[in-house]
Computed example of a mutant assay.
Amino acid sequence: MKVKEFINMLDQHKGKELMFSYQQDKLVGANYHLTEVKNVQFDTTDCGGKTNFWEETHFQLWESPEEIEKRTYMTTDKILSILNRVDGIKPLKKETELKFEYGNEDFTTAVMPVRELEWDQNRLYVSLFSEETKCKAKDQCCIEEEEIEAEACCETSNCC
């Protein structure tokens, strides 16, 4: 999901509580805050020698230990006001992929894309998911979707 798509959804669902799930049946606590907006650039070289460049935007969610008993969630209006403030200081890159950074004592901090958005009369639900790592040079490293023998691959590949 692009940043602009997320902002449009917030705008369409003004006044609703904004809730995030980070695993099946696991919600970010109502005590969360949007603590940082990151314009992130990746400038990489994969194992096949190909260079890659892309940008993403990360929204960092943090649960305040001082508000552990809080039961109402931040609203879409509050998030929009934070994003408008941020955009006035450092422009949001609205065409980039949006990911959320989150972790707690039971869940290792991860950067997760949006799987889906759902809503009801009072809430907007953002379902996040953890991505698996991938080899970007599968075609050069002879890595297939199915498991293969590493020795055979290494004989024909520059990656091993």
Score class of each variant (00 low, 15 high):
residue 17 E to K: 01
residue 18 L to C: 05
residue 20 F to Y: 05
residue 23 Q to W: 11
residue 23 Q to D: 15
residue 25 D to T: 07
residue 25 D to E: 12
residue 27 L to G: 08
residue 27 L to D: 10
residue 28 V to D: 00
residue 29 G to Q: 04
residue 32 Y to R: 02
residue 34 L to A: 04
residue 34 L to K: 01
residue 35 T to D: 13
residue 35 T to K: 06
residue 36 E to L: 09
residue 39 N to E: 07
residue 40 V to C: 11
residue 40 V to D: 06
residue 41 Q to I: 09
residue 41 Q to C: 08
residue 41 Q to L: 12
residue 42 F to K: 10
residue 43 D to H: 14
residue 44 T to W: 15
residue 44 T to P: 05
residue 44 T to G: 15
residue 45 T to L: 11
residue 45 T to P: 04
residue 45 T to K: 13
residue 46 D to R: 07
residue 47 C to Y: 08
residue 48 G to H: 06
residue 48 G to D: 10
residue 50 K to T: 05
residue 50 K to L: 08
residue 50 K to N: 10
residue 52 N to F: 10
residue 53 F to K: 14
residue 55 E to F: 07
residue 56 E to C: 05
residue 57 T to F: 00
residue 57 T to V: 12
residue 58 H to Y: 11
residue 59 F to G: 02
residue 60 Q to K: 14
residue 61 L to Q: 02
residue 61 L to S: 00
residue 62 W to C: 04
residue 64 S to W: 11
residue 64 S to A: 14
residue 65 P to G: 04
residue 65 P to Q: 05
residue 65 P to L: 03
residue 66 E to T: 15
residue 66 E to Y: 15
residue 67 E to S: 09
residue 67 E to P: 03
residue 68 I to L: 12
residue 69 E to T: 10
residue 70 K to M: 08
residue 70 K to G: 02
residue 70 K to C: 01
residue 71 R to P: 00
residue 73 Y to K: 08
residue 74 M to K: 02
residue 76 T to D: 02
residue 76 T to L: 00
residue 80 L to F: 01
residue 80 L to I: 06
residue 82 I to K: 03
residue 83 L to G: 00
residue 85 R to K: 07
residue 86 V to H: 02
residue 87 D to G: 06
residue 88 G to R: 03
residue 88 G to M: 01
residue 91 P to F: 00
residue 91 P to H: 06
residue 92 L to S: 03
residue 93 K to E: 04
residue 96 T to W: 02
residue 98 L to Y: 09
residue 100 F to S: 06
residue 104 N to V: 12
residue 105 E to A: 15
residue 105 E to R: 14
residue 106 D to H: 11
residue 106 D to R: 12
residue 106 D to I: 12
residue 107 F to C: 12
residue 107 F to V: 11
residue 108 T to W: 09
residue 108 T to P: 06
residue 108 T to V: 13
residue 109 T to V: 13
residue 110 A to K: 12
residue 111 V to H: 08
residue 111 V to M: 09
residue 112 M to F: 04
residue 112 M to W: 01
residue 113 P to I: 09
residue 114 V to H: 02
residue 114 V to Y: 02
residue 114 V to D: 04
residue 114 V to K: 01
residue 114 V to T: 06
residue 115 R to I: 07
residue 115 R to A: 14
residue 116 E to Y: 15
residue 117 L to Q: 02
residue 119 W to T: 09
residue 120 D to P: 07
residue 121 Q to T: 14
residue 122 N to K: 08
residue 123 R to A: 07
residue 124 L to G: 01
residue 124 L to S: 02
residue 124 L to E: 00
residue 128 L to V: 11
residue 129 F to N: 07
residue 129 F to P: 01
residue 132 E to H: 11
residue 133 T to P: 07
residue 133 T to G: 14
residue 135 C to S: 15
residue 135 C to Y: 13
residue 138 K to G: 09
residue 138 K to R: 13
residue 139 D to Q: 13
residue 141 C to S: 04
residue 142 C to V: 13
residue 142 C to N: 15
residue 142 C to G: 14
residue 143 I to G: 03
residue 145 E to A: 12
residue 148 I to L: 14
residue 150 A to N: 09
residue 150 A to I: 10
